[in-house]
Amino acid sequence: MFQINRQVILEHPRLKFLQDVVPIDEHMDGIEKFINLCYVDEGWNVVQHGRVIALRATDEQRLSSAFKASLYLGKYKDMANTERFLKSMVSAGHSYEPIRGETILFLFIGIGKPVYDHLVTYTVGRPTRIAGGQRANVPWGFELPVEARNEEEYAEELDRIRRVIQLAKTDRVEQMQAARAKLPVGYIMPPFLFEFSEEALIKHVFRQRLFERGAQGATVEVVSDMMECCMQIDPQKWEVLVDYHGPHLQQWEKAMRTLRKESYRLEDICKLLSISLEEALQKDLYSLLLESVGKLPPSMWEKQR
């Protein structure tokens, strides 16, 4: 039986839930009950990390992508080889077609509207979007920005959300569709679903929101939860995919551009790192280059801290 880890959601330090006007515990009870009925009882391995729950991974055992990779490569005698895609296609930079149609369905609980906006921009490889909070459903509270310096400055936002709920649901003066126009940007959306193909996750979502620097802090946190869910589902697959698409690629590209532009010699690299030539000769060359000419500048968010 799957149980939602409510503590990591409801006790999150930046989340302010309106439990006095929204029956959040009751809603969570219903969600948990039907996750078990609709997914766990049907044989799906449901996993959670932080505020993200992976409900369904269509190729958890990698047998579908194994069959497709074997067909792609013309290997008909061992079509259940679950490592063929990773070792013969990913490592060779071939087509990602075998996992393009394989998807992971994510449920997000306790997520602010800005993070939703950052995720909804991905349409390639996203077959499912269920966002009830964009219509007439009641917001659950307010999410403080990661970058907030004075928490007390945001207290009035929670009151604004409470007034909107009362206006639409208690006093019934306005419909929620209209009253939601008064909501602050950072309101907590009711739970929503996004489904992404595995290819879109590794090539787009994780790359742009995790591997490349500069994504907004709350988005980085939630997308990190998504990746950790993937790691729980299939560590071997996602470790290989991250190895070939991870953050080190940005450093390596910068290193190549700098080396080509500046024509550095080993002595120049030593000066950049303030080490002797003898010390440099003892170091791993790959690490030496990433630490020097591959060092990335601070992101906009890091500069503001």
Rank of each mutant, 00 (worst) to 15 (best):
139 P>L: 10
142 F>A: 05
177 Q>F: 08
173 V>S: 10
159 D>L: 08
139 P>A: 13
168 A>F: 03
139 P>Y: 15
162 R>F: 04
182 K>F: 11
166 Q>E: 14
165 I>Q: 12
178 A>S: 11
161 I>N: 02
176 M>E: 01
149 R>D: 15
147 E>C: 12
159 D>F: 05
143 E>P: 00
174 E>Y: 02
167 L>K: 07
157 E>P: 04
151 E>F: 03
146 V>F: 12
166 Q>V: 01
144 L>H: 10
143 E>G: 01
180 R>I: 02
152 E>P: 01
156 E>W: 14
160 R>T: 13
176 M>T: 02
159 D>V: 14
169 K>F: 01
181 A>N: 13
168 A>C: 06
152 E>L: 09
182 K>N: 05
152 E>N: 09
164 V>C: 13
174 E>C: 00
168 A>P: 03
172 R>S: 06
148 A>T: 15
142 F>E: 14
167 L>Q: 09
155 A>F: 10
177 Q>H: 09
183 L>V: 08
167 L>T: 07
161 I>L: 04
174 E>A: 05
153 E>I: 09
155 A>V: 07
175 Q>W: 12
166 Q>F: 05
160 R>L: 10
151 E>R: 09
144 L>A: 12
141 G>R: 07
154 Y>L: 15
172 R>P: 00
141 G>D: 07
183 L>M: 11
